[in-house]
C-alpha cells in the first residue's frame, strides 16, 4: 500500500514538474538557448537543437507520467534524462562555471541547492522506474 502511494506521489510530482518545466521554456525559447549555452558543454548548433527540442520532450514526458501510460518505459526514460541533467549540472558546477540552471525558469544559477533538488527528483524517477518494472514483471511459469 505504501509503495503504491509512493508510486502515485512520484508520478504526479515528476509529471507536473516536467510539464511545468517544459511549458516555461517554450514561453522564452531564446532565453532557454542562452541558459543551455551557459553550461559551456555544446557548440552553438548543439545548444539550439537541445534548447528547441528539450521543452517538447519534457511536456510529452510530463503528460505520459501523469497519465501513467507504459510507466516502466516512461519512468526509465525519465530517470535517464534526470541523470543526464544531473551529470551536466555537476560537471558544470565542478568546473567552476557560472551557469543558469534553466530548470524551472531562468536566472537561477547552479548551486548546491539546485543539485540537491535535482538529485531528489532523480531518486524519485529511479524509484518509479524500478517499481514499474517490478509491477510489470510477469511471473515465471512454475
Amino acid at each position: 500500500m505504501l509503495l503504491r502511494v509512493l508510486e502515485w506521489f512520484c508520478r504526479l510530482v515528476l509529471g507536473a514538474l516536467f510539464f511545468f518545466a517544459g511549458y516555461t521554456k517554450l514561453g522564452s525559447p531564446f532565453l532557454f538557448e542562452m541558459a543551455v549555452d551557459t553550461y559551456q558543454l555544446l557548440p552553438p548548433v548543439g545548444v539550439i537543437v537541445v534548447a528547441r527540442s528539450l521543452p517538447w520532450l519534457e511536456i510529452v514526458l510530463g503528460m505520459l507520467l501523469l497519465r501513467g501510460w507504459k510507466l516502466n518505459y516512461v519512468a526509465t526514460f525519465t530517470a535517464l534524462l534526470m541523470g543526464a541533467f544531473l551529470l551536466a549540472m555537476s560537471i558544470t558546477y565542478a568546473r567552476g562555471i557560472e551557469a543558469n540552471c534553466g530548470c524551472f525558469g531562468f536566472g537561477e544559477p547552479i548551486s548546491p541547492q539546485t543539485l540537491a533538488r535535482d538529485s531528489l527528483l532523480f531518486a524519485f524517477a529511479v524509484f518509479l522506474a524500478i517499481y514499474a518494472w517490478r509491477k510489470n514483471k510477469v511471473p515465471a511459469p512454475e
Partner: peptide
C-alpha cells in the same frame, strides 16, 4: 551577469553566452 532590457521587459542571465547564441536573441 547581464540584464537585457527590451520592450519594457528585463531578463537576467548569469554566465558566459556565445556570440552566435546572443545574436539570435
Amino acid at each position: 551577469t547581464f540584464f537585457i532590457t527590451a520592450q519594457g521587459k528585463t531578463e537576467k542571465v548569469s554566465g558566459v553566452v556565445q556570440y552566435s547564441v546572443l545574436q539570435r536573441y
